[in-house]
Design a protein around this nucleic acid. Structure first.
Lengths: 342, 342
DNA sequence: ATGAAAGCGCTAACAG
DNA sequence: CTGTTAGCGCTTTCAT
């Protein structure tokens, strides 16, 4: 049927063709398609006609007419970041389950791309947006007005205009510091990314926890790449070794940096945790396999995605309700990389 | 403006409002929007009106009227699989660059979900589809007729009905076997996934290469999860140890299985490569950090994504041209996990 | 170069 | 329960 259609250039079948085939009105066909009130007899005839004609509804037409896109936007920095990979999977599962589609966009933390994708979201008339913005865009967002609700993830809102879901970063960082302290470590260095609010918060938690233990904080900030972390930590440790002020542990603010640090220990010939305890964020599968296993904070990635979707649906349900900020806790997965001093 | 619109419930601005504001016809506005032939004077007036009204085109309406969706579908098994993560990023970059949007779907290798998403693709009237199907769906695909071109990735086409881009899997597997052989290994076990054509091809290459070296192949097939691989390899090695027929190396058909194997060696207390050399596919960042570094095949992931998009565009350009199969080569990244016997 | 008018395929009143 | 009809917002002839 559609084979011959293709060959002969006959136009695609529409609801009209189905109606003719079934001997009913287009309205009846539409009702069958949307499970409206139709007698069993007609319903059966229509369903047969749908099969016979190979009819497929045209979603563009449906969206135009019904005025809702059944589409949610998801804007992240880079889908290759395992955190966003997992979140996006959760978002997509929840969306498809609710009969919605997802438009995924990667910004590379570039404000121009963020602006462009924000525009796209408007043109798509998305039902809602889940967004991990840069600090710059976050500020602008407050002055922009969008025609759809936005849920912020990973990055926290400045004011309270948007719903958001974030990890309790200070608490998570403190968890790591406390764990290290409990294992007997006292000279705890910190390495943090220099672009995100996330790193800022983790640094704050790190500092506070160290202070609580009466310990001295020694933190550095680097661009969020494994290479930068590797170079910085190598330089740092070499200098520390010479001055006899080696840290006995280092905590790192994300998994990219963590990889860099592990690489550096190899290059320098340091053993983990003998020469240096190592710990960081994100319980990716491979962290279990590296060295004696890496102690890390596990983020509830799937919950974060789900929570964002829930927040979005609740907001759609009641546009007037107060803004919410869902703060999820991380857990410390202790492994050999912080095995203890001595 | 749209703030008050929201508050007062005034409808969103459309092309008509812009036309009125600019004192021109809707056709002229449309032409300005699509860079059609319009006098500079009117063009300027329209552009001002667009800014003044805060107009955003409605893509659903545009798509309905113009009969092309500017949308490409991407159906993969799981975006969390690093291979697909990387490919999807490449596809999305190429798509957005061409002014197209991407619908990403995860099937979990479930034929029912594949069928459902294939249906969705039709309803979205996608311009084209990039698809990594299961064997089951691949077979069906030949009998289905779609209204859009399909480019297969990762999984190879049976007949020649679809364009496709794949890794040269037999060659890559042979590369690994040859490397192991060169390092002095002679009892080379193989562990393969049992769902994809990919694993079948890699198994074929493995077998052929072993035969060429006059060696005996001993392969097993497991569900594509780290857990299955871990359990199977543990059982296998335990039995082999008892019977005194331990392999001295094992090659694995994907990175998920590879993780399982590494875990098993830890549980069993085997050293890599002393007790067992280990090698597999996909040069993920962490493979460098595990044990003495894992020898792996590196796939040109970004090229695969780009090539798929190129194939798709060329097909759209000329629907009649002969089907193409782009076969990309992997490279062997040698590391300590295949350090050599003795 | 510009405008008037005819739909794209569908849903949603409104009648009956 | 069923059919008729009027658009959703836009692009695209076809005139001018």
């Amino acid at each position: 049927m559609s084979d011959s259609a293709k060959a002969t250039g006959i136009k695609a079948v529409g609801i009209k063709d189905v109606a003719r085939e079934a001997g009913v009105s287009v309205a009846t066909v539409s009702r069958v398609l949307s499970n409206g009130p139709v007698s069993d007899a007609l319903r059966a005839r229509v369903e047969d006609a749908v099969l016979a004609t190979g009819y497929r509804p045209n979603l563009s037409a449906r969206r135009l007419r019904s005025q809702h896109s059944q589409t949610i936007g998801l804007i992240v920095s880079d889908i290759r970041n395992p955190f966003f990979t997992a979140v996006s999977r959760a978002v997509e599962d929840a969306a498809f389950q609710a009969g919605m589609r997802v438009i995924l966009c990667n910004t590379d933390e570039n404000p121009e791309r963020e602006a462009m994708y924000l525009r796209l979201m408007q043109e798509e008339r998305v039902t809602g947006l889940i967004f991990a913005p840069t600090r710059a865009t976050l500020a602008q967002l407050d002055r922009t007005d969008l025609d759809f609700p936005v849920v912020l993830i990973d990055r926290s809102a400045p004011a309270g205009r948007f719903d958001s879901v974030v990890l309790d970063n200070p608490q998570a960082a403190a968890l790591l510091v406390d764990h290290l302290h409990g294992q007997g470590y006292r000279r705890i260095a910190g390495l943090f990314g220099n672009t995100s609010t996330t790193a800022v918060e983790r640094h704050a938690g790190y500092q506070a926890a160290l202070a609580a233990h009466g310990l001295h904080a020694e933190a550095r900030f680097v661009p969020p790449t494994a290479e930068a972390a590797e170079a910085e930590i190598a330089r740092w440790l070499a200098a520390a070794q010479r001055s006899g002020a080696m840290p006995d542990a280092v905590m790192v603010s994300n998994s990219l940096l963590l990889m860099g640090v592990v690489k550096a220990t190899r290059t320098l010939g340091l053993t983990i945790p003998g020469d240096l305890a190592v710990t960081g964020f994100d319980n990716e599968p491979w962290t279990e396999l590296v060295g004696p296993g890496l102690t890390v904070i596990e983020q509830p990635v799937h919950e974060i995605g789900r929570a964002a979707m829930t927040l979005l649906f609740e907001r759609l349900d009641d546009p007037e309700r107060a803004t919410r900020k869902v703060v999820l806790s991380g857990t410390c997965v202790a492994r050999g990389s912080t095995g203890g001093v001595g």
